[in-house]
Design a binder for these strands. Structure first.
Length: 557
RNA sequence: GCCCCCGUAGCUCAAUUGGACAGAGCGUCGGCCUUCUAAGCCGAAUGUUGCAGGUUCGAGCCCUGCCGGGGGCACCA
């Protein structure tokens, strides 16, 4: 089920009211803007509000309160609306009709797993989310994990608003890093066989290199001693890539496309990109290198794209890759990078523009780092020294759900302090349990219900108007906000909003569970059935929200 | 030196993109288990939004300048 959001409908209704008031000459003529209708922070003001009258004070040259009254008098109220209030200094507040809120469980159950799906004009559009994009030279780190979880959550949200989403992973499968990887494995291989070989500073230090060497010995014994490092590199690259894929799958992240940098060389796209840039007049030679005139696009200095030794820098294939994205015609591309790429992202987009494309379809999402906290203290990681916690270890320790949640529990602009103790704590202090427990509690009611031998669909024709408890209604109002949250995320690319929403929703649920009993003898039968309907809907909403976050919705914990 | 991010309650962070009295969690204090899981609920206290100006009917949010913290500034990726 797809639906239009209430705030858009109200915005249109307010706009129409302004036009009508002008026709009735209770408002003077002026250009009518699209009124912003939003949820007020303080729910006591109502469910929706607009400050349009305050904004119109100048063009209308009237007191805001008078404007608000003139508008309110002409609003054609949608069926779901209760009262409309005009409040000083000029806000117009809207309240949803209680009867309509009470009926929400029916809508939720009808929508089921599609609940929250909205049509905001992206239906059928294509989007690409590029994230993780780690080179196959080592285990997935926590920084990449954060990008992955942000990306995958975004992927789920973008689908909920109608996009066809491609999850894409770009990696460098050749070049110096891979050569070093091959050398590292060969050194470890020789060492394991008791031969003389020395690991250099620039080599990969992690124990996983030794593991790979051991694998090779198990399979080939010492038969590879005279093999070139290329063979080791190829083996390590493929194995690590495979392991990365398997690890990401453990936290529910899957990619549709693995894009190899090398393929851009094989297809000639890199050369082609350089030539196209040259034809457009953005390439010149200096000191034996080829330079991209990025200053034409606001860069502080021009950038080398082909080094004096004839090798391209990473920028050229990066630009070629984004040219490819442009040519594939995505309506939206979201590139997700960690703090180490903050400086380079704009240069790539300059390249895209130099090739004649508008780069507005690309949104670059930069996120901050992940710190690990144990026992209340932060510990620093270092990839070079092999001192890091891998995603695999983290999954073993705290599970996928906690990782998914905490990675989006902060705005991308803030660092995440991942508290390992909190992540496994089984209490209301741990938001993961707190949220999932809401779903567990709903499931528990239906389990008890079934155990009592009661009819499974007894609540089908329940009288929902019996849902009169203040807390029941507050919860139902909150479920309606899911669509707004998804719209906001799809507009701002800020998936942390989903984590906050899920928590807020749970915080409104638990008091209902405490106060609005179902199976107890003192609850009258019609109320019992209405509440059963309520909890059935609540269960659907929590399942949906957890699914959007890529988390499990357990029936028992 | 230049660029990016951050600075909000004791701590960690939100704040619907410029709206109403700046909100949550943790921590602190006080209540609640013969009731569908207390893995929970109810209540209380807590602010010069780093500083100084500016724009606006209205600023945590926008502009300018400072101060402080983090990250980045390769013919590495």
């Amino acid at each position: 089920m797809e639906c239009m959001l209430q705030h858009h409908e109200l915005s249109a209704a307010v706009r129409a009211a302004i036009v009508a008031a002008q026709a009735a000459q209770t408002l003077p003529p002026f250009e009518v803007p699209d009124p912003v209708v939003e949820r007020p922070r303080d729910a006591t003001y109502g469910d929706y509000a607009t400050a349009i009258a305050l904004q119109l004070a100048r063009p209308a040259r009237m007191a805001p309160l008078k404007i608000a009254e003139a508008i309110a008098a002409h609003i054609v109220s949608p069926h779901y609306l209760g009262e409309i209030n005009v409040v000083p200094p000029g806000f117009i507040n809207f309240r949803l009709a209680d009867e309509w809120v009470q009926a929400l469980p029916a809508r939720i159950l009808e929508a089921d797993a599609e609940f929250g799906r909205i049509d905001i004009g992206h239906e059928g559009q294509s989007a690409q989310v590029e994230c993780v994009s780690a080179n196959p030279t080592g285990p997935i780190t926590l920084g990449r994990t954060r990008g992955g979880v942000i990306g995958d959550t975004l992927h789920r949200v973008l689908e909920a608003v109608g996009y066809n989403v491609t999850m894409e992973y770009y990696y460098n499968d050749a070049g110096r890093q891979i050569t070093l990887l091959g050398e590292s494995v060969k050194v470890r291989y020789l060492q394991q066989l008791g031969r003389r070989a020395k690991l250099l500073d620039e080599h990969y230090q992690g124990d996983y290199i030794i593991d790979l060497a051991k694998e090779l010995i198990a399979e080939h014994a010492d038969a590879l001693v005279d093999m070139p490092t290329d063979a080791f590199a190829e083996y390590a690259r493929d194995r690590i890539s495979q392991q990365q894929k398997a690890t990401l799958a453990r936290i529910g992240i899957f990619f549709d496309v693995y894009f190899r940098e090398q393929s851009l060389y094989e297809s000639g796209a890199v050369d082609h990109t350089l030539e196209a840039l040259r034809e457009n007049g953005y390439i010149y030679e200096k000191d034996g290198a080829q330079w991209f005139r990025s200053t034409d696009f606001g860069d502080e200095k021009d950038r080398v794209v082909v080094k004096a030794d004839g090798e391209p820098t990473y920028r050229l294939p990066d630009i070629a890759y984004h040219w490819d994205k442009a040519q594939r015609g995505f309506d939206l591309v979201v590139d997700i990078f960690g703090p180490d790429h903050h400086a380079t992202a704009p240069q790539v987009l300059m390249g895209v523009r130099a090739l004649g494309y508008d780069s507005d379809f690309v949104h670059t999402l930069l996120h901050q780092i992940v710190n690990l906290v144990r026992g209340g203290e932060q510990f620093k990681m270092s990839t070079r020294r092999g001192l890091f916690v891998t995603l695999d270890e983290l999954v073993d320790e705290v599970g996928a759900d906690a990782i998914r949640y905490f990675m989006i529990s902060r705005s991308a602009n803030s660092p995440v302090d991942f508290d390992l103790d909190l992540a496994v704590e089984r209490s209301d202090k741990n938001p993961v349990y707190y949220i999932q427990n809401a779903h567990v509690r709903c499931a528990g009611i239906f389990r008890k219900w079934a155990e009592a031998g009661l009819a499974e669909n007894a609540d089908e024709d329940a009288d929902l108007s019996l849902l009169t408890h203040e807390r029941e209604l507050a919860f139902l109002r909150k479920t309606l906000e899911l669509g707004d949250v998804l719209e906001m995320i799809a507009t701002t690319y800020e998936p942390h909003r989903l984590a906050f929403y899920a928590y807020d929703l749970a915080a409104l649920f638990h008091p209902v569970y405490e106060e609005c009993r179902v199976l107890h003898s003192e609850v009258p039968e019609p109320v019992r059935l209405a509440r059963l309907r309520f909890y059935r809907a609540a269960k659907v909403v929590f399942a949906r929200v957890l699914a959007l976050m890529g988390m499990s919705a357990p029936d028992v914990m």
